[in-house]
Amino acid sequence: MSCLQTIQDYALRAVTTDPDWALRALPKSDFTLCQQVTLIGSGLIWNIYFGVLALLAGFFFANALAVAKGAKSLLIRKPAEWFIFIFRGSPLFVQFFFGYFVFLSLKGVSPFFTPFTAAWLGALIVLFCNTAAYSGEIFYGALRSVPRGDVEAADAYGFSGFTRFRRIIWPTALRLAWPAYTNEAIFLFHATTLVFFSGFPAWQQKGDALYYASYFADKTFNPFVPYPILAGFFILLTLCILGIFGLINARLNRHLPQERRAKVKFKPNLMR
């Protein structure tokens, strides 16, 4: 079987809905390099799906959490503080298990919760809450480090209330938080590899990149091929994220003189 044929067969294997496709078995022996690259790349679709959706939805919730955590009212502040504490203080792996079993119990109560026990929704919700908590903490820190002068200048110009927040405080905070938020995004994409190892079942052998990599490593008993392939894919993905976030960072900093712009660098000092 030529490599082109393999790509045609397996490139979308991880996400296929066609019943014939679903039945198309994974290769069982004589694994070629092409098969491994194609299938692991196919699994990467799931990593991107989880990462992108959780990040997009989490961004909005994180902002709300950050504002709520900085609120004066105890009634608003405490729930946000607890939410952030719970999701930042416990391992994502345990959160996945807990979430899965909660959804499984709820499924027994009402069939409405059936899709929640599948990875595409259930794991996405856990990842969404998780990234919202981590980014919420980053944004909270950024909101608190907005220079006083900026706020005073806004006051002097007659800004107040929501307008002041939207036009002055929030853009500055976002700009300050962006390098740390980039790290968070990278670690979120890395965290998506946990999904299929933590309770959520992979139906019809449709899993993420690590699922296929470990499949090959188990079958060939040779970890030196699939895992480096996976590593290569993830390094590419990381570079893409850095590129996209760098562009956004450039736009957020476009009013500043060149030397004062914060560079987006991969700084794991602010880790999850």
Partner: peptide, 17 residues
């Protein structure tokens, strides 16, 4: 390298390797 790749992939890799 260790930073750029998910840690769990390293865990699975190193144990066999």
């Amino acid at each position: 390298i260790v930073r750029g790749v998910p840690d769990i992939a390293f865990f699975l890799f190193f144990v066999i390797a």
